[in-house]
């Protein structure tokens, strides 16, 4: 064993972390991005993530097809999104608070229904072995990719384009920025917001399926340790830009691998602090990049979380 930290090996570990850990962050934050662009916030996506993980695992177990599981996860995410969307459309109902309550409800119902799913083994999602050219097992493993990751990255680019170039994207942004104006132009604000929340739920559900059907794989009650909540926060950090959401998700994925990688190389003190590194980094980046007094660039004007100044 060497004393220093092997840089190459560390970078490989971070790359592996991106491939393995970032996908749930990616899907949840893209989903939340769509919802927030429309002027709603759904803090309950942690519950949606867990619910998707459970139902995806269950369906994969019942049908033997992990891709059907992914679909089921998305659909069950839509269901929770629909509930959230409908409730928040009632006058005087606070979307932040309903989100937190929905998080509790979503995780509770997943744990309850998921009891019989802890023991059985479901079919897992396959992976592409992009590193088969290498003889280094670490390279081979770091380059093992699941199709959902490139799919999510592509989706991020597509969404950015959609928000800028397509009619639906522009309408959605208008609805999120200025509901009165959208209404004056004849758009159905409430319906569009519900739609955006349902779409957000769909993506968050898929993020959950990645957890149970690929990495770490399996269903149990501790599967998500707050990734969903963090991903929601990342959207504000990324300032409602899908591509920046994707970058932030990749950053969190790499950071998730940092602590264990350093420990496995013998740097064994202060692992709690290493593990908290992504949070510190996010906070510092946020502090450096935001200016007082100025409205957040890209902030949807109707968003209850940021519309105060």
């Amino acid at each position: 064993m060497h004393d220093g930290v092997a840089l190459g090996s560390l970078l490989l570990a971070l790359l592996g972390g991106i491939m393995r850990v970032s996908t749930p962050f990616l899907f949840v934050s893209l989903g939340e991005c769509i919802t927030e662009i429309s002027g709603r916030i759904n803090l309950g996506l942690e519950g949606t993530l867990v619910f998707g993980a459970m139902s995806g695992y269950g369906v994969s177990w019942l049908t033997g097809s992990p891709w059907l599981g992914v679909l089921a996860a998305g659909v069950s995410g839509m269901l929770l999104g629909l509930i959230h969307g409908l409730l928040c459309s009632l006058p005087k109902v606070n979307d932040i608070a309903v989100g937190i309550a929905m998080m509790l409800f979503g995780t509770g119902i997943s744990f309850f229904i998921g009891k019989p799913l802890i023991q059985p083994e479901a079919a897992m999602l396959p992976s592409w072995h992009l590193g088969s050219w290498s003889h280094d097992p670490q390279v081979r493993d770091a380059l093992r990719v699941n199709a959902l990751l490139p799919l999510g990255l592509g989706l991020a680019a597509l969404l950015r384009l959609a928000f800028k170039r397509t009619r639906l994207g522009l309408v959605l942004r208008l609805v999120g920025d200025n509901a009165a104006a959208a209404r004056a132009l004849g758009y159905h604000v409430v319906r569009l917001r519900i739609l955006a929340t349902v779409a957000g739920g769909f993506l968050a559900g898929i993020g959950g399926a990645f957890l149970s059907l690929y990495y770490p794989g399996g269903w149990n009650e501790g599967l998500s340790s707050g990734q969903g909540l963090m991903a929601v926060a990342l959207v504000i950090f990324a300032r409602w830009d899908p591509v920046r959401c994707a970058l932030a998700a990749l950053l969190f994925g790499a950071a998730g691998a940092l602590g264990p990688a350093l420990q496995s190389q013998g740097l064994t003190q202060g692992y709690y602090l290493f593990n908290a590194a992504p949070y510190v980094l996010t906070l510092i980046l946020m502090t450096l990049s935001w200016r007082p007094g100025q409205t957040l660039a890209g902030s949807p004007g109707e968003l209850s979380l940021t519309n105060r100044s």
């Binding site: 149990n220 420990q263 593990n275």
Partner: peptide
């Protein structure tokens, strides 16, 4: 040895396992 810091952290446990295998 890798200490994850808590009794039930599946993603961290998976990462710890993978980085040990990598070593």
């Amino acid at each position: 040895v890798i200490f994850t810091g808590d009794w039930s952290l599946p993603v961290k446990e998976a990462e710890a396992s993978n980085s040990l295998v990598d070593q």
